[in-house]
Design a protein around this nucleic acid. Sequence first.
DNA 1: TCCGTCATGTAAATGGTTACATGATTCG
DNA 2: CGAATCATGTAACCATTTACATGACGGA
Lengths: 184, 184
Amino acid sequence: MARQAQTSTAVLGVLSIGSLTGYEIRQAISTVLGHFWHESFGQIYPCLADLEADGLVHATPGERSGSNRYEITAAGRQRLRELLATTPSAAPPRNGVLLRVFFGQSLAPADLDALLDDVVSEATGRLATYAGIRAAIVGDPAYPEHGRYWEATIRAGELTAQSQLVWATETRGTLLPPATIPAP
Amino acid sequence: MARQAQTSTAVLGVLSIGSLTGYEIRQAISTVLGHFWHESFGQIYPCLADLEADGLVHATPGERSGSNRYEITAAGRQRLRELLATTPSAAPPRNGVLLRVFFGQSLAPADLDALLDDVVSEATGRLATYAGIRAAIVGDPAYPEHGRYWEATIRAGELTAQSQLVWATETRGTLLPPATIPAP
DNA sequence: TCCGTCATGTAAATGGTTACATGATTCG
DNA sequence: CGAATCATGTAACCATTTACATGACGGA
């Protein structure tokens, strides 16, 4: 059994595109999948060991001494297909912003204002990031079929960020009396 | 130190509205905060013990033998205000749907279709739930000021669900050739 | 009487992050 | 040479879930 299904899926996924070292796997996950996924070294290395024990990946000595280059095996591709067909396990919800807004009565207007401000700048920042990624993958034909799926995940991020922007603006109008908003 | 800031905030929050037993706290969190927050018994009872040790809540024997009714103290209200003013810690992202879509090349069209279907029905279901809650709190004047904040959290859920609906529909159109979609 | 709900709590396992230890290689 | 980066791995810790153990009370 390969440790945790979620981590295995992400690792086998990136290895299905190309062979990488553990270090590079982590880089790939944080740069390419970063806007919707996360893995730390403490997860990746033990997971790779398990995957190798199960014959789902194969390690060959890398260019540097002591480094391993992992490639996915046929069994690994099969396993990836199975893992992807699984229905995703929904994480129990824990939205810190909404928790604070819900108890907004116990929160100073200035703090609520700051909270909503953070949501706006967070969402705005992410929209800028997505625009950059989109421009990069649309221009580059290096991602033949894969780019279409990549773009769909970017689109999800955009829609989420946009709805957060709408919510924060709306909510500021509803919950904060105009007088409490500092003039520009 | 009261165990974990997140759990303490939720527990102190519900106790700021009224006195409850541990069992009722859990119920309140799952029914009222359920669409954006979650706590299990294994978290709540130890947290209550810590909060009491810190003088933030006060336990009195409940109606039933062996039960405790907790009420928030003045120090507890103060602590809640401090906790709410804290910037929420962003959980590392882990979106199982997007992970599957990203590696959609390794996924059979039927499975991708099922995945998007799940997103649609999930979002649709949540919209119905929100409509119900909204009707209940708008009609009932039992929530004097609090209802405004409650409604803002419902609104956030609605916008999120709507954007997921848009995304799933859009994505189905982009990634799934019409032929693979079973006729109605 | 027995079942369901109310009620409290703990132990074990899980999933994950963080920090640390180690060392090779590259580049200025 | 020294700093940054590449690279691997482990140990400790943390938050949280799950399962379990226990028992009171009310109503069918």
